[in-house]
Design a protein around this nucleic acid. Sequence first.
DNA 1: ATGACAATCAGAGATTGA
Length: 259
Amino acid sequence: MKIATFNINGIKARIDALTEWLKTSDPDVAVLQEIKSIDDNFPRAHFEDMGYIVETHGQKSFNGVAILSKLPLEDVTRGLPGDPEDEQARWIEATVVGETPVRVCGLYLPNGNPVPGPKYDYKLDWMRRLKDRAAQLLAQEEPAVMCGDYNIIPQDEDAARPEVWQEDALARPESRAAFREILNLGFTEAFRARQHAPGHYSFWDYQAGAWDRNDGIRIDHHLLTPQAADLLKDCWIESAVRGREKPSDHVPVWIELSA
DNA sequence: ATGACAATCAGAGATTGA
């Protein structure tokens, strides 16, 4: 089972690039962030015609997550538990029924800038709720993946120019500590389980020729429960997608599971 | 120190992102 997480930065703007990517790279499961669309405006039939089951959790203008799957999906839920007041569409879950069923959670973690401020408070509170949900998933003792745009640069080696991110919500010590707290529950960060070298990124800003200068950051991640980590065959970043026509500023990050 | 770039909604320019 091949699963890719991909922040597409708007379904309306990315429909052609996303379609081309699905055709050529052929994920079994595509976990999408920033669809920037309400559910009714998501081009569901277009992807169904390509053989995908489509589950969305959108809102107007911003955020929004989705799962496209060639394998059956069961028990779809929307929204991160823990705050009924939270109306931002940043979390979706479904069980992908392959040879071995896998619970797949797609997330778009808040950016959190500027620091300090209410947006940063929201980020840290969202991560507290994420930790609660992560602990529940661990207690199930089943294969589960939490993947998406974490808006977290885990370590300095995950940025081309770590010095410019020092005071940023993506790299602040409190942000990194909250991320590590979740890892320390017992999750495996798939990319670092397979790759130890610095210089691998999943986002390059549109501005100032960041892609051409390889001035990137690694902020899109897969976190695996032990039962999922035991199934991990490989993890890689499809960075070439950033160089295509009308690209997102993020690229797909893949895992392959023996499932 | 600033802006650069892109997307959305709207129908100009503010807001958001990272």
